[in-house]
């Protein structure tokens, strides 16, 4: 797959950070407004996809990026499990995923115990998964058997 013209590359460079920030906003406000880890993760993956579509497949770069994304996904799942285990530990071995942090006040940004942290972890996991799928579809599709 070839990249596009210089205009598209430049515009996508300008727009990608905005999309990424929007995804982060949706993740961090997931417990107050519509959205959350799943929606924000897919939006952040959209920023990656736009960048790859505009710049074409420069194979060595994409391979490195894919390795990083795989690490991010595995780390996110491990973090989710660690959170669950901490809940088990703090509740005295009774409840898996017990909400052990201070809950705060309803409607504030810092509230809901560890729900925002879980949102971040799920967002990282979904973002890495979908970006990896897209890279695999675009890059390894053209790989021929030697």
């Amino acid at each position: 797959m070839k990249g596009m013209t210089i205009i598209v590359k430049k515009i996508s460079q300008i727009i990608c950070p905005v999309i990424f920030m929007f995804g982060l906003y949706i993740i961090l406000h997931g417990h107050l407004t519509p959205g959350g880890g799943f929606a924000g993760g897919v939006i952040m993956a959209g920023a990656f996809i736009l960048q790859i579509l505009a710049n074409g497949n420069i194979l060595p770069d994409l391979r490195k990026e894919e390795e990083g994304l795989e690490f991010m996904e595995s780390a996110a799942i491990l973090g989710f499990l660690i959170l669950a285990g901490l809940g088990l530990l703090f509740s005295g071995g009774v409840v898996f995923f017990a909400n052990f942090l201070d809950k705060g006040e309803l409607g504030k940004l810092i509230s809901g115990g560890f729900i925002p942290i879980e949102n971040v972890v799920v967002g990282a996991e979904v973002c890495a998964a979908i970006a990896t799928i897209f890279i695999a579809m675009v890059v390894y599709k053209d790989e021929e058997k030697k």
Partner: peptide, 10 residues
């Protein structure tokens, strides 16, 4: 369904 949609994509 929120989880189901994302699994559907995968």
């Amino acid at each position: 369904i929120l989880t189901s949609i994302v699994i559907g994509l995968a």
